Amino acid sequence: MLHLIDRSDDLVVAALPQDVDFCTSADVRAAGERLLAVDCRYLVLDTSSVTNLDSSGITVLLAIWQGLREAGGALLVAVPDEHLRWRLGILGLDTVLVITVTLDEAVTQARQLRDGTRPFRFAHQPAIETESA
């Protein structure tokens, strides 16, 4: 139930369906599990088509996040809709998921995380600056 956009080794970019709810969440979860089974470690989800995301959809996102985290990877979610970003923030998901505004930004951050050129942190956390000796 995920629409594959791109795959490069262990980095997959996919789009969520319009509805991620009680009726579709089992299919979305199964698709996420299949990606993990074929060595996906960094998953970027595009939410630009999502119009309905209920609690079962949130549960699926967290299940996919947990599977990727256990595999040493990360889930990044591109959320262009300001209201949906606000809702995810209210639920505290911005403290566990990497949420970006654009798909390009999410893909860039996923590549940087994978390549080790970007430390893992959430959007609301400032970078920790170190003094050079």
Rank of each mutant, 00 (worst) to 15 (best):
M1S: 13
L2Y: 08
H3P: 00
D6F: 11
D9L: 02
L11N: 03
L11D: 01
L11V: 07
V13H: 00
V13A: 10
L16F: 10
P17F: 10
C23R: 15
A26P: 08
D27N: 05
V28I: 14
A30N: 12
E33D: 09
R34G: 00
L35V: 01
L36Y: 12
D39I: 04
D39V: 03
R41M: 05
D46L: 10
S49R: 15
T51W: 10
T51P: 05
N52F: 15
L53Y: 07
L53K: 02
S55Y: 08
I58Y: 04
V60Q: 02
L61V: 05
L61N: 03
L61D: 01
L62I: 14
L68W: 11
L68Q: 05
E70P: 04
A71F: 07
G72L: 01
L75W: 05
L76C: 05
V77S: 04
V79D: 05
D81W: 07
D81S: 10
D81N: 14
R85P: 09
R85L: 10
R85H: 06
W86N: 12
W86A: 03
L88G: 03
G92F: 08
D94F: 05
L97H: 08
V101H: 15
V101P: 04
T102H: 10
L103Y: 03
A106M: 02
T108E: 14
Q109R: 15
A110T: 03
R111Y: 07
R111A: 00
R114C: 06
D115F: 06
T117K: 08
F120P: 00
H124K: 13
H124P: 00
Q125Y: 04
P126T: 08
P126D: 02
I128V: 14
T130K: 15
